[in-house]
């Protein structure tokens, strides 16, 4: 029930805008994180309130909120995904690809980003 209340608060907020697939991702993430951390809703709600009060620009708050959700869901990979995005936006962001086929340069750097913790 707490989960539904939280989702309602996020999805009905006029301070950010999430697409259908982003909403689905948020829903799934909360559900999965809740298995391991029953207090996750409180943490998300606190951060959500902080983000939406930090700017009046919906684009900014949406991006900040999604970044936060991604970092919660993928604590190891999220930083790596962001680094990879900077290098090549078209690279698969799940990190599941053959870097030697995809990248022709900077291979050593790519390998250390995607393979090491």
């Amino acid at each position: 029930m707490r989960e539904i209340g939280l989702l309602h608060e996020i999805f009905s907020s006029a301070r950010l805008h999430l697409t259908f697939s982003q909403k689905e991702f948020v829903k799934e993430t909360i559900k999965i994180l809740n298995i391991f951390c029953p207090k996750i809703e409180e943490l998300i709600l606190k951060k959500f309130n902080k983000i939406v009060s930090s700017s009046n620009d919906k684009n900014i708050t949406t991006k900040l909120f999604l970044d936060f959700i991604y970092s919660l869901r993928y604590p190891i990979s999220w930083k790596k995904i962001k680094e990879l995005k900077k290098m090549d936006k078209s690279a698969p962001l799940d990190l599941e690809f053959d870097e030697e086929v995809f990248f022709k340069t900077d291979l050593q750097k790519i390998k250390s980003i995607i393979n090491e913790i």
Binding site: I76, S77, D94, L95, N115, E116
Partner: peptide
């Protein structure tokens, strides 16, 4: 709510979820 559903899993090219590559 199985603890097998680790959050950091991705859908791989063969259509199966696995732990992320660095893990």
């Amino acid at each position: 709510r199985s603890e097998l559903c680790f959050p950091e899993m991705f859908l791989c090219p063969d259509g199966k979820y696995r732990y992320s590559r660095p893990i």
